[in-house]
Design a protein around this nucleic acid. Structure first.
Lengths: 212, 212, 212, 212
DNA sequence: AATGAATGAGGCTTCATTCAT
DNA sequence: GATGAATGAAGCCTCATTCAT
């Protein structure tokens, strides 16, 4: 009843919330949005259905919050990694690498974002659209800068951003859905070469890319 | 007369089947697999629920047949168009162009294949995987030939096939989900430049590409 | 079109009818009345659903006709066998024996009559009741005669008829439902002893019963 | 208060479960297993369909639990009554009497066990088989003891157990299915005489049986 | 805050019956 | 007479959401 007690109650509550989100991520990416029952989430979160509905108004809201938070985290990570580089080509490379590595390390999150969200029904499409848009623009931004710096010739960076995201998406998808896929990172060298070349990065720059 | 009568009965039956598939394509792409009720399909096909179940054993089977047939048609179309060209670069270009144009002309089919199938649940994933694989390999095949002909330098054509498909996929997706999108073909010039460049087609070849 | 042709048409028709009844007997006794689909019967009779509905107005009517015909045949057979004997005790014995043997030789018919008809729903109950009644009375009749002849002391032959039929029924049932039952006839000696004793047939008469 | 509250919640839940079982017994015995709709049960139990499915996983499970519980209760009752007697003949008599009386007092339970369960389809047959078996063996056990005590001569008690159960079953059945049947107990004197005689209980013992 | 029981709309599928050919 | 396509009424079950405790 003291301030402390109340604080720890709030903490407990938010920890439970977190636990629900984690459970939901697993369940959604395992079964798909529609086939995931709130009961399943409750079980995996070691809570009750009622407990979930205390923290979230609807099943949909859990899903949306999950997508948003996941995307947020991924974008932040990419921006952090990109900020470490100053050369535009290396920045683009860092973006590609970060996305690939992050997905590789979080299969269920990848599934959620790339596989599940698409087919989950009309209400989610716009949410997901925003996500794709965001990544495409993130990339387009780096490319714009590369153009501005004269590293590459001018081009339609909107389409390029989309295309890059799509290419990465598809490679990750193949890895996600395959039975026993090779490590996702093994596609990295070929993919970055492809993408950087696609926007006209000169061959001599490609030759001197670091290994990673 | 009997032969004729029987023929027309069979014909009527198969036309009804077709009508059901058409209706299903609409409904699925409008509402998503799970949210599409068999009742809706029946209504749109001007049939009864039972009528549908005479022609198809399950809702799932309708969906799968739809995906397969659609993919089949698209692949056939691409191969037909590609066969018209003899130069490997122009062949690859024809493939890109055909896919883009076909999707542009069949929004609901595109939605079905690219948006809906992914999230429709576990049973469809493998089916869809095969579809993606198929397109990726189709492209990889053209690239292999281009390499063999010495038009482009050797590269990982598997990854490139996937990446191309992904890039096209994403561009189409953006168009599909957008509210009032510009014509899909308007992205074609930028996209083909990007893709052809990505595999190292020399700039002088890119410069002399026909307009279309 | 001649008389002959018409005759053979009628013949073909009635043969088809028979084939449907046979098929129905199999299907009903295999799956139960409710779980037997008219389609199943049609398939087993190598006909179409429409074909069945030409010969029978409803599924129910097939079942009822089947029960009636089967019962008819069994009763006739019993009466025929009983008529071969003149001694009342031997007559009763013959009745028991005939029922047991007939069921033993026609498992699916037995299933139909004893297992299926009961649970097939309200409309059949009365039909089945009549069947049980009939057998019980058949037996009661023989017992009445035995009483009249002074072979056994007077008793409630109605109840005895029912009890006999029930006893036989149950023994057959155990055989019907068992996995790999011994031949039904192996229960015959013990059962006839039991039944004959139950109505007071003197031990010396029981001792001199023929083997069969 | 919390302990109390929790207790009463569990109690309420189990009372609802009971109410569902009761309702199911009525509906099943009125309409038959297949024709009984879960909706009907819900209505009669003053619950919702979902409420039923909270307590039972399937319609089938309700039926099976019902059969088991009913059989259990009946067997227990018989054993209790039999235990009151020490003489084997009187024990057998008590068993007959108890079954007859119990059924007489619980028509819907009798219908469920004797009429409905048989035709309810393959899955229930084995369950029901076990029930019949159980009663037959119960009786066989009493007869075995009577033989051991020298009250009756040795005989095939397995077959006798079955036959007794069948005889009782049939008498009850006639009563169940008849329109306006006489009280079931009115058949008791004749039936017990018949059954006891069938296993060779001496006439002088039969003469001195109590009235009840 | 949490629980778990309850609700009821809605989904997929089955199937007896009808009917045009 | 026969066929097979079509109909539509149920049926069982699922599950997001609500709510008393």
């Amino acid at each position: 009843m003291s301030a402390e007690t109340r604080a720890s109650a709030a903490e407990r509550s938010s920890r439970r919330r977190e636990r629900i989100l984690d459970a939901a991520a697993h369940v959604f990416s395992r079964a798909g949005y529609r086939d995931a029952a709130v009961d399943d989430i409750a079980r995996e979160a070691a809570t009750s259905k009622g407990g979930i509905y205390f923290h979230f108004p609807t099943k949909e809201s859990i899903f949306i919050e999950l997508i948003r938070a996941t995307a947020e985290r991924l974008v932040a990570k990419v921006e952090r990694e990109v900020a470490q580089e100053s050369d535009p080509v290396l920045q683009a490379d860092a973006a590609i690498r970060t996305v690939l590595r992050t997905f590789a390390g979080h299969r269920s999150m990848a599934r959620l974002l790339l596989v599940d969200a698409l087919g989950a029904g009309r209400p989610f499409r716009s949410e997901l659209l925003r996500l794709h848009e965001r990544f495409a623009e993130l990339i387009a931004g780096y490319l714009d800068r590369a153009v501005a710096d004269g590293v590459i010739a001018p081009l339609d960076t909107r389409v390029a951003g989309r295309a890059w995201f799509g290419a990465i998406h598809e490679v990750v998808l193949g890895w996600l859905v395959a039975d026993r896929p090779p490590p996702l990172e093994s596609a990295y060298p070929a993919l970055r070469l492809l993408l950087l070349r696609s926007v006209g990065v000169p061959e001599e720059r490609l030759a001197e890319l670091p290994e990673r």
